[in-house]
Design a protein around this nucleic acid. Sequence first.
DNA 1: CCTTTCTTGAAAATCACTATAATTTATTAT
DNA 2: ATAATAAATTATAGTGATTTTCAAGAAAGG
Lengths: 161, 161
Amino acid sequence: MEQRIDRIKKQLHSQSYKLTPQREATVRVLLENEKDHLSAEDVYLLVKEKAPEIGLATVYRTLELLNELEVVDKINFGDGVSRYDLRKEGADHFHHHLVCIECGSVDEIQEDLLGDVEKVVEANWNFRIKDHRLTFHGVCHRCIEQEKNSGEHVNKEANKA
Amino acid sequence: MEQRIDRIKKQLHSQSYKLTPQREATVRVLLENEKDHLSAEDVYLLVKEKAPEIGLATVYRTLELLNELEVVDKINFGDGVSRYDLRKEGADHFHHHLVCIECGSVDEIQEDLLGDVEKVVEANWNFRIKDHRLTFHGVCHRCIEQEKNSGEHVNKEANKA
DNA sequence: CCTTTCTTGAAAATCACTATAATTTATTAT
DNA sequence: ATAATAAATTATAGTGATTTTCAAGAAAGG
Ligand SMILES: [Mn+2]
Ligand SMILES: [Mn+2]
Ligand SMILES: [Zn+2]
Ligand SMILES: [Zn+2]
């Protein structure tokens, strides 16, 4: 954690930005919620807990800055807000997402999976790929499990009628 | 075109919605600009040309309705607006996009490409895929060409100095 | 017709996000 | 140190896209 912050600090310095207390508090929140996909508002509320005097505009600016530095990726799942996803250190590609249309959960796929596809696109469409966004919408493993169980229920109910 | 509208009309009726003149004008604009990725505002301005009395709210409502009926897909390329993409009839998957970070163009890939990847995801993550969104960000073939040419220019300039 | 339901258009409201301006904090020059 | 300079922050006002509200206008059924 501290090391991670140190490296981000160095990244900021390399572009002559400072790691202010507000920026550090924001980065800590992101690190502590690495698995989540927080909106700016979410981050703001969490940062306020440890730095109550911070302003919403600062959170927006910090997230934008971290996005430029490629510390976070800005993503959009189609609900009205942008979400910020900490980029895994050393990851050479942006990970993928599984959005559940039943429960709204968002799971991650760290495996690349797109290597072959990207080769085809670069070759056949003469497109130089710099980044990608891949999201699957469907039913997550938890909801599939639940379905099995409540599926039995439904059948019992159906049998009654 | 007319047949396509007829089928959409039937789809609306099957859910007891009507194909009002405003809705028809909106659908026509979408059909006439099938290759583009229009925002609600874009659609509004185009519809106004053939039905000047239409209101912006109606366009939004119609696009939302068409999205529910799966006639259009609502997509978001990260600029602040939602865009509406006519779903190809009979397409069993949503097509992919190539967004150029140089010129902003958006090209389409109709080929599936994800068959194998989806099999892996369904099997290894126990996720039942219903839909997907795949977008590549990079440099389009036009900009790559232009680069080659202006690249020569740049070199000439550099040689001058 | 009369009533009910669906749609619409204009305007107001909402919501996420951005820009502004005054103030504070950090850096550099004297 | 001290003063000038630059960077960053805060609160607030402003934007722009989208949604909601509400009064008025068609369409459908009896
Ligand atoms: Mn993620
Ligand atoms: Mn498209
Ligand atoms: Zn689920
Ligand atoms: Zn281009």
